[in-house]
Write a protein that binds this DNA or RNA. Structure first.
Lengths: 219, 219
DNA sequence: CCAAAAGTGTTAGGAGTACACCCATGG
DNA sequence: CCATGGGTGTACTCCTAACACTTTTGG
């Protein structure tokens, strides 16, 4: 019985939630799009395998990675019995440029609400990842993983809106974040638009105390 | 690479949360306690494998079963590389008597806060299952899976208290349940104590509408 | 000076929490 | 009649949601 890992890699690009898909070069499903993934080596843990695949595909490491679910229906791979352990990863906006060497016909970012047909049961995996991400957004700080180190409040709100796929009230959003005391203001501003926006940094330390308080972001 | 399923089977017995453990008859960890489990067959899905093991071990089927997480560190089994897909199951109080044929030195219910040392990484799996159960209790109706079809409000509260391991306020608990409108009163009463207690039935249908409302039971 | 995004307060309604007494039954 | 668990209501606080205008900058 063979075991693979498949990874749903999310990023935010201009207020859009995107996932990385690769074009398959070999059968089955040759020419179709699929999630990046590969076999688990004999001597590595599942997490390590996922991390390795992620690095091979995107060049980044040290990103948020979480195991999702295992899919193992007989017949999910037409060739032989393969069980896959699915993961999802979050890559911040400033690190989601694909390596120059990567042929963009091979690996590319796709908007989550405009996906091509996917190979195997990858559509199911992707939907599951999206659901998990939406849920986790509400009671953890995964949202911050999609932003660069310093970000404006509007950018943060954009992440929430992109993932939840709905508009949020600016004042309520900001008050809620304020109340949580998990952001440290910097003295920098994002210029280039109209009025400059103050940049903040995620203060993870303060968050630890809040974890068992339950819901953090009920937007 | 071999794949197994291991199952954390919970039940409630007199206001105590319990898990089923089996004594290992063969090395490694011979004589120690472990979670029930076994290999995934070539032609069955992961869910089917878990269901089969559950039935073999307890004689019950048609119970709540949910995939938990996959554990696959090299070395978690000293003999060879084995990846296990962990599940947890909930068996209602009225169905948790072990089959007469089962030698009780082989399989027995253990209080979750008074466990023996466990084989492999099963302690980690069990802790994870308990955490998941506690979380799910707050935003789903899994709690009802641990009760017979008809139950009193005090019994329901007992389930919450046993799992969350804390006392709850009777009036607030009842008001909250009332508000959710997910119970249908029956005309039966539980007698035998002092004042008889009205029995209720879980009205699953009404719940469907509430699911996306978020938190249901923030006790 | 105009367009565009940043930033800021108040109010009304609903949910959570804390808390104490009467009721029905069996022995 | 008494011990035991079943059953009920109120007041306060806090969080949520709805809602509109002023400020700062670049062009």
């Amino acid at each position: 019985m063979k075991v693979t890992v498949d990874i749903v890699i999310f990023t935010i690009q201009p207020d859009e939630l995107k996932v990385l898909l690769v074009k398959r070069g070999i059968p089955p499903f040759k020419g179709q799009f699929a999630l990046p993934g590969g076999f688990v080596h004999e001597d590595e843990s599942l997490d390590d395998a996922a991390m390795r695949e992620l690095r091979e595909e995107t060049g980044v490491s040290d990103v948020y990675l979480e195991q999702l679910y295992s899919f193992g229906d007989p017949g999910r791979d037409p060739r032989e019995r393969i069980i896959t352990v699915a993961y999802y990863a979050l890559i911040s906006a400033d690190r989601s440029q694909l390596a120059a060497g990567t042929d963009t016909t091979e690996a590319a970012w796709w908007r989550v609400n405009k996906l091509p047909p996917l190979a195997f049961d990858h559509r199911k995996i992707l939907d599951y990842a999206l659901e998990r991400l939406r849920n986790k957004l509400e009671y953890t700080t995964v949202g911050f993983q999609l932003l660069p180190e310093k970000f404006s409040l509007t950018e943060l709100q954009g992440v929430y809106e992109a993932i939840l796929d709905k508009k949020l009230d600016k004042r309520n959003f900001r008050r809620k974040i304020e109340l949580l005391k998990i952001l440290k203001p910097t003295s920098e501003y994002r210029r280039g638009g109209q009025r400059p926006a103050r940049l903040y940094r995620f203060a993870a330390a303060r968050f630890e105390k809040l974890k068992d308080k339950g819901i953090l972001f009920p937007f």
